[in-house]
Every structure is written in C-alpha cells, then in structure tokens.
Simulated assay, not measured.
Amino acid sequence: MKLIIGLTGGIGSGKSAASRWFENQGIVVVDADIVAREIVDIGQPALVEIAKTFGEDILLNDGALNRKALREIIFQSSDARQQLEAITHPAIRTSIIQQLNAAHSPYVILVSPLLFETNQHELTTRNLLIDASVELQIARATQRDGQNIEQIEKIIAAQMPREQKQQRADDIVLNDGQLAHLYASLRILHEKYLTLAQA
C-alpha cells in the first residue's frame, strides 16, 4: 500500500516551505489548493455546474470563473457556500485520488490547509502538522499577503483550532521561524517516512 502523508498547518505556518522541501527531495506533492483551482478551469464539469447553479454572472467574458463575484455570493449566504461545496468537494476529492494514485515516489505528500476540516485525512496514512504560534502566523501572513490583521484573524478563526490539529496529527513540527530548524526536523521525518514506505 502506498504511504501517503497529509501535510497541513494554518495560514502562515510554513506548509509551503515544508512542501517545497519535500519536493526538492524528489517526493511527489499533491496540493489540494492547486487541485481546487484546476477543477474550476474553463471546460471543467464543476465550472459548468457552478454557472448553472449561480448564473452566468459568475463567469468572466472569456468563460473563466469570476472568483470575486462568486466570493461575494458565498460570503453573504451559508446556503450558497454549501451549494458550492456540494459541487466542488467531490470533484476535488476525485482529482486528488487520481493524482495520488498516479504519483511515483517512495511516498506521496498531500498538502491541504483543510486536511481535517474536509475529511481529506481519510485519504492519508499519517498526518504531519506544521505548527506555529498564532502571533507568528499573523506576522508572517500579513507580511506575505499584504492583508490586514483583521482579515488574517478571520481566516485563522475559520480554520480548526491549533490544539485540535495537534491532537489529530501523527507528527508535529514546530516552525518557530528558522528555516534551518524546519529543514532539520523535516529531514528526520523524511528518513522515517522512507523507512515506513519500505515496510
């Protein structure tokens, strides 16, 4: 059976730095955020379904998804959010499974900010949490994304609390800001995962 490692962490925790490190070791990384964008590309069944459900106004002139228009609808109505998730979540899951099955490396990483929230952890063998204090998350995310603190705090509040993620993770790496420290911790886990993959 293929060893699949779920990689998660809150905004600004350092998941992207971690996933890039694993890629540099030759490990295939399937990124749920990228998959979520791919399934609403022009011509994809999920986009056709979204346009049917929410009207042609959520499409740009070239037929691509108008993310801003859709976001406004979703923010105003939890029913609309549920309708959207009913379309996108199954399509995302199917695509993730296909990519995980097609991956050829000693083990595979599934990166997902909402690994536990969307039950994507059901697809994984073990789960790795890249953890950071809320203060550090806010500091990093505001520097990187140019968003204000309130927006970042809202995103953090919408995600599963750190403590719950810590309880559900098999492996936890505290990313306290030093990349060398992060990489050293990941190297130890990489060796462990290689051994597990051969078991």
Results as ranks from 00 to 15, higher is better:
residue 147 Q to S: 15
residue 167 Q to I: 07
residue 199 A to W: 11
residue 181 H to I: 13
residue 13 S to E: 00
residue 43 G to S: 06
residue 93 R to M: 04
residue 154 K to Q: 14
residue 45 P to L: 11
residue 129 L to N: 04
residue 72 E to P: 07
residue 196 L to T: 13
residue 77 S to V: 09
residue 14 G to Y: 00
residue 25 Q to Y: 11
residue 110 L to S: 02
residue 50 I to V: 15
residue 144 R to Q: 08
residue 199 A to C: 14
residue 133 S to P: 08
residue 72 E to G: 04
residue 160 M to W: 09
residue 48 V to Y: 07
residue 92 I to C: 11
residue 31 D to K: 04
residue 74 I to D: 01
residue 27 I to P: 00
residue 77 S to H: 07
residue 195 T to E: 15
residue 29 V to N: 06
residue 99 Q to C: 10
residue 86 A to N: 12
residue 15 K to N: 01
residue 104 H to L: 13
residue 74 I to C: 03
residue 12 G to N: 05
residue 127 N to D: 08
residue 30 V to T: 08
residue 61 N to T: 13
residue 78 S to E: 12
residue 16 S to A: 06
residue 96 I to D: 09
residue 107 Y to K: 06
residue 116 F to I: 07
residue 138 I to R: 10
residue 187 R to D: 13
residue 183 Y to G: 03
residue 125 T to D: 08
residue 66 N to W: 01
residue 88 T to D: 04
residue 114 L to C: 04
residue 15 K to I: 01
residue 5 I to N: 00
residue 164 Q to D: 14
residue 130 I to W: 01
residue 141 A to S: 13
residue 113 P to T: 06
residue 6 G to T: 01
residue 9 G to S: 07
residue 196 L to A: 13
residue 23 E to K: 15
residue 19 S to N: 04
residue 199 A to D: 14
residue 40 V to N: 07
residue 139 A to R: 14
residue 48 V to Q: 14
residue 132 A to W: 03
residue 32 A to E: 05
residue 90 P to A: 04
residue 53 T to F: 02
residue 22 F to K: 10
residue 67 R to E: 07
residue 143 Q to R: 15
residue 5 I to P: 00
residue 131 D to H: 12
residue 35 V to D: 05
residue 40 V to S: 08
residue 37 R to Y: 06
residue 67 R to H: 04
residue 50 I to K: 05
residue 148 N to P: 02
residue 22 F to P: 00
residue 100 L to Q: 07
residue 15 K to G: 00
residue 158 A to C: 05
